[in-house]
Design a protein around this nucleic acid. Structure first.
Length: 217
DNA sequence: TAGTGACA
DNA sequence: ACAG
């Protein structure tokens, strides 16, 4: 016997290419760092609470969102955009925690996109049943800048498609501590998240947090 | 088309 | 598909 059948399997860091310009960094975030990130998320959300935004089509998103940093991504009946003010509080979005910036820069570098100076961080909370249909991130000014997406808590199935909505997406399981970085030829790739399955995670309980770092301007 | 819902 |  080389190991206890019931011991937690160690997740070793690993880098995988998804497609040209897109990289999956498995277990890029340590459990210790992940715990610090979740604590920082709590601080952010105390200032700008999660809310289920409305799409231009008039539907509420199942993913609860907030932001930190100089700019925040918002949607309502008028469309998608970045704003310096939180429409819920009327105040500026909370500062991006230093630990967020450090992680985003490390991950971007690992994905081949250094330097990266994010000015926006979207905080997404997926509860069981929440999903995000295929879309492109196209509200940023400089498409030369990458997207960095961090998973914390419950696992999810990430969908990474091509340049056309009709392209069949690759499906990949993202676990807590995984990071996906995309840019260059993959910058406008369609992507989404499949319906989140219920479960329990020691770090977050019954939810998944996703931090998405961008350069809005 | 960052949404839902019907139908096969 | 749909409707926004």
């Amino acid at each position: 016997m080389t190991g206890d059948l019931f011991a937690a399997l160690p997740r070793e860091p690993d880098i995988e290419s998804i497609t040209e310009g897109a990289t999956l960094l498995r277990a890029f975030v340590s459990d210790e760092e992940a715990a610090a990130l979740v604590a920082a998320i709590d601080t952010v959300l105390a200032h700008s609470p999660l809310r289920n935004m409305q799409t231009p089509g008039g539907f509420r998103m199942s993913v609860a969102m907030s932001n930190c940093g100089q700019f925040g991504w918002v949607t309502d009946r008028r469309g998608y955009r970045y704003q310096t003010l939180d429409p819920l509080t009327g105040q500026h979005w909370p500062d991006m925690p230093a630990a967020f910036v450090a992680l985003a820069q490390r991950a971007a570098a690992a994905g081949g996109f250094a330097p990266f100076l994010p000015d926006a961080c979207l905080v997404n909370r997926y509860d069981p049943g929440a999903r995000m249909s295929l879309h492109q991130d196209r509200n940023e000014e400089d498409m030369q800048q990458p997207i960095v997406s961090v998973s914390l808590g419950l696992p999810a199935t990430f969908l990474f498609g091509g340049m056309e909505r009709s392209d069949k997406p690759q499906r990949m399981r993202l676990e807590s501590g995984d990071v996906v970085v995309w840019g260059g030829p993959a910058r406008l790739a369609f992507h989404g998240v499949d319906v989140l399955r219920d479960g329990e995670h020691p770090l977050t309980g019954r939810c998944r947090y996703n931090l998405t770092f961008r350069r809005a301007r």
